[in-house]
């Protein structure tokens, strides 16, 4: 027969850790909400990587921007194929609009910070 004690212990630990993870996620969300960026200000390495990402210079291979463009294009394709009959145009518009708003928001926040 299996030992019930470790099962009880593991179950308890899982419950506790789930709660803690939820808190960490909430904290991360709040941080993102307040600062608008997930850039760590006093971490030079993070700042350097961020600068390189902005300059689109992340080493050999397809650049991050190209990759993200591809992914985006892929997303559009699948989306339109899914919504072929049920108002694909509408879904697409909404997507772009949402993205624009998001970008604008991010820039605003950054502007405020400086």
């Amino acid at each position: 027969m299996a030992d019930p004690v470790p099962q009880a212990l593991v179950l308890t630990a899982i419950v506790i850790t789930l709660g803690m993870t939820a808190f960490v996620l909430a904290l991360a969300h709040r941080g993102r909400q307040l600062s608008g960026v997930d850039l760590v200000d006093d971490d030079t390495e993070s700042a350097r990587i961020h600068a390189r990402a902005e300059a689109d210079d992340l080493g050999p291979g397809p650049s991050a921007r190209e990759t993200s463009d591809e992914i985006e294009a892929e997303g559009h394709r699948t989306e339109s194929s899914h919504h072929d009959e049920t108002g694909a145009e509408h879904a697409h518009d909404e997507f772009v609009e949402d993205e624009d708003r998001h970008h604008g928001h991010g820039h605003d926040k950054r502007g405020e910070r400086r």
Partner: peptide, 13 residues
């Protein structure tokens, strides 16, 4: 949940 406290809290957590 101010920015300063969230930052300090992240380290601590």
């Amino acid at each position: 949940g101010t920015l300063e406290r969230v930052r300090a809290g992240t380290t601590y957590v």
